[in-house]
């Protein structure tokens, strides 16, 4: 399944802020997410790409229900959305078995469910007799294997993955990456965050590009990744010139402002594969004004900042 079906989750102009303590009674509000909109469809794997500090982890926390957005809306009612967290809540003096139980329950598996899977975990982690020894005696690699084996048992409606694909030594990394890749490719709904565009190209049908807390582009992974690379990747200079096209900028501005508040319209413009230019356009817009390669990068960022700025950072 994919676009066309009913989204399992719809984000509209989602923003999230933190309070930074600046001194006694002085706080400053910081918007980690300013304006994020996209749909997640059942069974798809959606990639999230963006540079450090673009708001990826904040977005994952909102998707996982750990925190709530401070503005905007999320619709859709998945029963569970869980971040694949490794070695969650591990206690050093407990055995591997006990830690697997504890960690699994914290990740949302029922006590009976984890008890049922405990042998599978032991086998997958390849710990042998060490499974019933305190994990304080484990090597870092053994602990990583146990952590992965537990987290891999998770079966939420939406699986959120932050960079982790494989762990451990070469052999286990290969094995864990293989099963993880398989899980992402299956008809499970997955949101995969990665620095590495190659990973997204390989695993995700669609992708979201986050920049400075805003969605810069949503669409087929190849298109989004190409746009992302154009802006920040090594091939940026080479591709700069042919992209200058004033018309695109105009269309982008209008479609972005007008249709944005109406969910139906928004989804339509975001998801029609051919229309990717709309979504990507905010990057192009300032670039047309600025020809220069280096400052186009800066412009691109300020451009999106303005776009977010139209919805001022003083949400409800």
């Amino acid at each position: 399944m994919g676009p066309g079906a009913k989204p399992v989750l719809s984000l509209r102009h989602v923003g999230a802020s933190y309070w930074l303590r600046k001194g006694f009674f002085r706080r400053q509000r910081f918007w980690a997410l300013k304006d994020v909109s996209f749909d997640l469809y059942p069974g798809e794997s959606l990639g999230v790409v963006g540079r450090n500090g673009c708001g990826k982890s904040t977005l994952l926390k909102i998707l996982a229900g750990i925190t709530r957005p401070d503005k905007g809306s999320i619709s859709g009612e998945p029963r569970s959305a869980t971040l694949l967290a490794l070695q969650l809540g591990f206690l050093p003096y407990l055995t591997g078995r006990e830690n697997a139980m504890l960690s699994g329950m914290m990740l949302g598996l029922t006590r009976a469910g984890i008890a049922e899977r405990i042998e599978a975990i032991a086998e997958f982690a390849e710990l042998g007799d060490f499974f019933d020894e305190p994990i304080a005696e484990y090597s870092a690699g053994m602990r990583a294997r146990l952590g992965f084996a537990v987290a891999f048992q998770l079966d939420p409606d939406i699986l959120l993955v932050d960079e982790v694909l494989g762990v451990g030594d070469a052999q286990f990394r290969e094995k864990s990456t293989a099963v993880m890749t398989e899980k992402i490719r299956s008809d499970k709904t997955v949101v995969l965050v990665s620095h590495n565009p190659e990973t997204l190209l390989e695993l995700c049908g669609r992708a979201v590009w986050l920049e400075d807390g805003c969605t810069r582009a949503v669409g087929p992974t190849e298109e989004v990744v190409r746009a992302y690379r154009d802006a920040f990747g090594p091939r940026r200079r080479a591709r700069k010139r042919p992209n200058i096209e004033p018309v695109t900028a105009g269309r982008a501005a209008s479609s972005d402002g007008a249709g944005a508040d109406e969910p139906g319209v928004d989804r339509a413009h975001i998801d029609k594969g051919t229309d990717i230019a709309h979504a990507v356009a905010p990057r192009d817009a300032p670039r047309t004004a600025q020809g220069d390669g280096l400052s186009s990068k800066v412009q691109a960022a300020t451009g999106s900042g303005e776009k977010c700025g139209r919805r001022p950072g003083r949400g409800p």
Partner: peptide
């Protein structure tokens, strides 16, 4: 589920306390 989690976490903390 959270009731189970509380009980298991209490047991785990108790075990961790004594096991070390």
């Amino acid at each position: 589920h959270y009731f189970d989690l509380i009980l298991y976490k209490t047991y785990a903390d108790m075990r961790a306390e004594t096991a070390r």
